[in-house]
Design a binder for these strands. Structure first.
Length: 326
DNA sequence: AAGCCGGGGCC
DNA sequence: GGCCCAGGCTT
């Protein structure tokens, strides 16, 4: 690869982003965790609010988990932030609050895998450790015309090795951001802008008109459908929520919802508030929201809150949609 | 190696 | 409706 062309292209065309204004490893780390499986445009407002509220890793280590969840509600993959929180406490207690600077120590922290460790090492510390994400896999599988299924670990590792060989000849900080930026702006999943690409003269996919068939990503399994009745249980100015203990959306609050017809409480329906659908990675929720009056006793796991306090409880997007029906 | 874990943007 | 993701952890 002509690394100079890539780095020069980055110098001229990169987006100005809030997490590119800093070299603070804590800030880079927070941004990279937010960016896992999440688009830049989605992350920006969350990142700015997060850093304003928690400017240092000590602030993150000290915050209550529920307040942390309120800050990031809507971003998805909430376990990322349980791990982020846990890792901040480790850095404060075991590294005197100084974010570690060796790959080995960084990679050990919970929630930091190969990609995130490489991103932190290269972007924050300018060290030659590759950060190979979905963008890089797309760019390099096209550039080298590699048609192997990139959902298979072994094939991803092949790209990782190539990316590592490049970063060792590059300016690590610029290179890592440049190849991902190229993937985001030029070498896009659909409608890649090959005519504007600084690497088009050496791209084997472009040469063979295969840019629209690479990377080769095998199909994912079908999503399973689950239908829920969601209960808006009103009692004057109060209603009931529960905190999810499931792995899916764990820690977020929701209106009580049940899949089956046989329920552990009695109620009258006051009104059908509406139907909402929410699509996850591996399943689909179809939710029928019912405003009801409770006849029997509430369940122990429910908490009774004032309607005015609803916004104080972190909720995932599926149940935000239900809350918007109120 | 496969399954689990969110959400938004695009066509 | 179906496609795409700036991954990591568990089993």
């Amino acid at each position: 690869m002509n690394i100079n062309k890539l780095e020069n292209w980055y110098a001229d065309h990169h987006r100005k982003l809030p997490f590119r204004e800093t070299k603070d490893p804590y800030h880079i780390w927070v941004s990279e965790v937010m960016l896992q499986q999440t688009q830049v445009e989605t992350v920006i407002p969350y990142f700015e609010r997060f850093i304003k509220r928690l400017p240092s890793i000590h602030d993150l280590a000290a915050i209550e988990e529920e307040k942390l969840f309120s800050l990031i509600q809507g971003l998805g993959y909430y376990r990322r932030f349980k791990n982020l929180h846990k890792a901040a406490k480790i850095v404060v207690t075991q590294h005197k609050g100084i974010f570690p600077s060796s790959f080995k120590e960084v990679r050990k922290l919970p929630g930091i895998g190969d990609y995130t460790a490489g991103a932190i090492m290269s972007i924050a510390y300018n060290k030659p450790y590759n950060a190979t994400d979905g963008n890089v896999i797309r760019v390099l599988s096209r550039l080298m015309n590699i048609n192997d299924d990139m959902r298979i670990d072994k094939n991803k590792k092949q790209i990782t090795a190539i990316n590592q060989s490049f970063i060792e000849k590059a300016n690590p900080n610029i290179y890592t951001q440049a190849i991902m930026e190229l993937g985001a702006l030029i070498c896009r999943p659909i409608h890649p802008k090959c005519k504007l690409c600084p690497l088009n003269s050496e791209c084997l996919a472009y040469k063979n008109n295969l840019q629209n068939t690479l990377p080769n990503l095998s199909k994912k399994p079908e999503k399973k459908l689950i239908q829920y009745k969601v209960f808006i249980i009103r009692d004057n100015n109060y209603l009931y929520l529960r905190k999810r203990k499931e792995k899916l959306l764990g820690g977020m609050y929701e209106f009580p919802q049940f899949e089956e017809d046989l329920l552990p409480f009695d109620y009258h329906v006051i009104k059908v508030l509406g139907h909402k659908k929410h699509i996850f990675t591996h399943l689909i929720w179809e939710m029928k929201a019912l405003e009801v009056k409770l006849i029997s006793e509430p369940l122990d796991e429910w908490i009774k809150i004032s309607i005015d306090d609803l916004k104080l409880y972190p909720m995932a997007t599926a149940h935000k949609k239900i809350a918007n029906l109120l």
